[in-house]
């Protein structure tokens, strides 16, 4: 039976679905028994979802072309 430390050591690959089927089975066996690790897995997945879906650093669509034209103008000026 894995400990929480064992689980956390493999947690990164588990989130990325990059563990073998044998290891996955062991990790999920631990998860069934461990409320703390369940919370960590659930909240970390939600964190990734919230961050991934966030548009907080996105360039607004109407700002793309001004950047394109400014960059090309600077390049043409240097030519």
């Amino acid at each position: 039976m894995l400990t929480c430390a064992d689980f956390l050591a493999e947690f990164g690959d588990y989130l990325e679905d990059a563990v073998s089927s044998e290891l996955r089975a062991e990790l999920e066996e631990h998860l069934r028994e461990c409320k703390t690790c369940q919370v960590i897995v659930d909240s970390t997945r939600k964190t990734i979802r919230i961050v991934t879906d966030s548009g907080c650093f996105a360039l607004p669509a109407d700002k793309v072309e001004p950047i394109v034209s400014d960059v090309m103008a600077r390049i043409r000026k240097k030519q």
């Binding site: 996105a58 360039l59 793309v64 950047i67």
Partner: peptide
Amino acid sequence: VRRHSRRVF
């Protein structure tokens, strides 16, 4: 520039 401006920004 058009393809990658969003990523760089």
